[in-house]
């Protein structure tokens, strides 16, 4: 099966500054893809090139076999949700959602039916007469989502749609977006700098840095088998164990905080001894900083009711050889 969304050798330069340096990827229909990376890594520029707001310096973008590289944004049949909602302030919620349908020439009665359907989908039935300023940020962003998908676009582009919302709404809305996306089977490209967001929601993640793809894969692969040092440190927390800290290790090794435990497990075959330098009780998880011969290690353990730990306690750390990561360049 040929890829549904295909990006080939995509390059974008602004003057002498190249922000996207020959990016390639191909995704299947219905996939939820995240472009993840720090600010300035080129992820937003790629999304804007897919949308047609930026013209690629070279390379090609294909959707469902059509080369859309040189089409205008209004010829691409895509949907997009922006960080700043970008609802039309002069229109009601219903008019906002119907906008794309009206432009496409859909008759009024069909438009009304589609708007009702969309409002039900986003959980805001009966809101069509409201104006955007009468709604909360989360509600506005859901309307923006409905507006984007109402004309049944080939591709849904999400440009950091959750960044302007507060933490609680961010989590619930991302689950809602994912559920709707799955229901409709719409291929989606999601841009974010939040690795937790990307991992929780995506089928596959493109981790980017400085205009290049560092790694492309499922969340599980990226977290457990980071391809580069950048991916290992950008995605999730990581402890670096300098050479010499572990018996028999020749070089630097790294390990995730949750893979170090205070009690032996069947697979653990290494131990380290240290003192607790700091501890944070986060409820279900306890985060420790343990000083092992001058190296501070972060350790996440589940809450344990039996004996509260204290700063200054000496603890034995158990870890498994197979969990150690060797960081490349």
């Amino acid at each position: 099966m040929p890829a549904f969304l295909e990006v080939q050798n995509l390059v974008k330069s602004f003057g002498s500054n190249t922000v996207v340096k020959g990016v390639n990827f191909a995704f299947d229909k219905g996939e939820f893809i995240s472009l993840l990376g720090p600010s300035g890594c080129g992820k937003t520029t790629i999304l804007r090139m897919i949308a047609g707001f930026e013209r690629p310096t070279s390379g090609a973008i294909r959707v469902d076999g059509d080369d859309i590289t040189h089409l205008k944004p209004n010829q691409r049949k895509l949907g997009m949700v922006f960080q700043a909602y970008a609802l039309f302030p002069n229109m009601t919620v219903g008019e906002n959602i119907a906008f794309g349908l009206k432009i496409a020439g859909m008759p009024a009665d069909q438009r009304r039916a589609r708007v009702d359907e969309m409002l039900k989908l986003i959980g805001l039935p009966g809101f069509e007469k409201r104006y955007p300023y009468e709604m909360s940020g989360g509600q506005q962003q859901r309307v923006a989502l409905a507006r984007a998908i109402a004309p049944k676009p080939r591709l849904l582009l999400l440009d950091e749609p959750l960044s302007a919302l507060d933490a609680k709404i961010r989590v619930s809305l991302r689950e809602e977006i994912r559920a709707i996306q799955r229901d409709l089977g719409i291929t989606t490209v999601f841009v974010t700098h939040d690795q937790e967001e990307a991992m929780s929601i995506s089928d596959r993640i493109v981790v980017m840095n400085a205009g290049n793809i560092e790694q492309l894969g499922a969340a599980h692969d990226i977290y457990n088998r980071p391809a580069t040092r950048f991916v290992a440190t950008f995605v999730g927390q990581l402890n670096t164990l300098p050479a010499g800290l572990l018996p028999g290790a020749t070089g630097e090794r790294a390990i995730r905080p949750e893979l170090i435990s205070l009690a032996p497990r069947p697979e653990t075959d290494l131990t380290l001894t240290g003192t607790i330098a700091d501890l944070h009780f986060l409820g279900s998880v306890q985060r420790l900083r343990v000083d092992v011969g001058g190296t501070l290690l972060n350790i996440d353990t589940f809450n344990n009711q039996t004996k509260p730990l204290q700063r200054g306690d000496t603890v034995t750390l158990h870890l498994a050889q197979k969990d150690l990561l060797t960081l490349g360049a």
Binding site: A51, P73, L157
Partner: peptide, 9 residues
Amino acid sequence: EAAQIMGAN
């Protein structure tokens, strides 16, 4: 941009 992507000229 929001209007453009929805097909408006």
